[in-house]
């Protein structure tokens, strides 16, 4: 019998040439998005400045109370003036940004790993485990998160950086787990998962090598937007006075000085730089996240 061969692309294909992967598409979309590109550049500049400068700065020096220099306006000694404790604002901004970003990043990482693991398992295997996990998630999502974190911050005897990250992560994994679960649920119904099963691929390999890559773009978008959110939550709690211990410089603490009528009206150098810094940080990360989100949605791609 004659074999019918469909005409293939006639031009020779370079055997090592790779087609664009999902990540490459995301990257390409980012480069095309001017706003996102600008955001990335600002972020890189800002963060490298912050992390490099913070190595040089002496933190003990910065947090030391200097009664002779209370609320000093910007000068040569203090580039951005001092706060009500006579502490250098510029130094606090650098260390505060480093802390906020590092904490936000760590929480995103931890909740990402937990959310991914739980979501993938619940979504892929389904059944009773899925039912129980979903009940827990629905419950945690309803809890008055902010209040409970504040209560924990006051009753945990040694509330430090790690307990803070732990308490935050204990609540914030749920949203991710729910998202990943619903996407996994949809993905596992597709025939390529059935095909892998018939080909003898073990379940853990199907989850990690087959399903996970198909969720990668959603995960990246979610993690980026979450990073911004977590920085916001951290600085917000510090603003209320329930974030990091007082001795640690924090952007939120600087802004909280603005609750004083005199400071907000007359001492802009105390709170405006910190507010601007957080806004820039959050806006840039969000712009990148939104650009990534558009990139995953083929309808909105720039081409």
């Amino acid at each position: 019998m004659m074999r019918l061969i469909e005409p293939l692309n006639t031009q020779p294909v370079n055997s090592e040439e790779k087609s664009p992967s999902a990540l490459a598409i995301l990257g390409r979309e980012l480069v095309k998005d001017k706003l996102a590109m600008a955001s990335i550049i600002i972020l890189i500049l800002l963060l490298s400045t912050v992390y490099i400068t913070s190595l040089v700065l002496n933190q003990d020096q910065i947090v030391k109370i200097d009664l002779l220099e209370i609320n000093a306006p910007p000068s040569e000694d203090h580039l951005l003036g001092t706060d009500q404790g006579g502490r250098d604002i510029f130094g606090q901004l650098i260390i505060g940004t480093r802390n906020s970003f590092s904490i936000g990043f760590l929480i995103t990482l931890i909740t990402g790993i937990i959310g991914l693991t739980v979501g993938l398992i619940a979504g892929y295997f389904g059944g009773i485990a899925d039912n129980i996990i979903m009940r827990i998630i629905d419950f945690v999502l309803v809890l008055p998160f902010l209040m409970i974190v504040i209560v924990c911050a006051t009753i945990v005897p040694k509330f430090n950086l790690w307990t803070f990250i732990f308490v935050m992560s204990a609540f914030l994994w749920t949203g991710k787990a729910r998202l990943i679960r619903s996407k996994t649920l949809a993905e596992r119904e597709l025939d390529y998962v059935s095909a892998s099963k018939t080909l003898g691929t073990p379940n853990w390999k199907i989850i990690l090598r087959e399903v996970l890559p198909n969720l990668s773009s959603i995960i990246i978008v979610n993690l980026t937007l979450n990073l911004a959110g977590n920085i916001g939550i951290e600085s917000g709690l510090s603003f209320l006075g329930f974030g990091l211990p007082e001795s640690t410089p924090s952007l939120g603490t600087l802004i909280s000085y603005a609750q004083d009528a005199d400071t907000i009206q007359n001492k802009w150098w105390v709170w405006v730089p910190a507010s601007v810094l957080i806004l820039v940080l959050m806006l840039c990360i969000n712009f990148v996240g939104q650009a990534l989100k558009r990139a995953t949605d083929a309808r909105q791609r720039k081409g």
Partner: peptide, 22 residues
Amino acid sequence: TYFTYATPLFIFAILMMFLFSF
């Protein structure tokens, strides 16, 4: 929406207070 989505509530409230009240 991009701006409001990214702005933390406490900063926005402080700015509103600074602008419209003080």
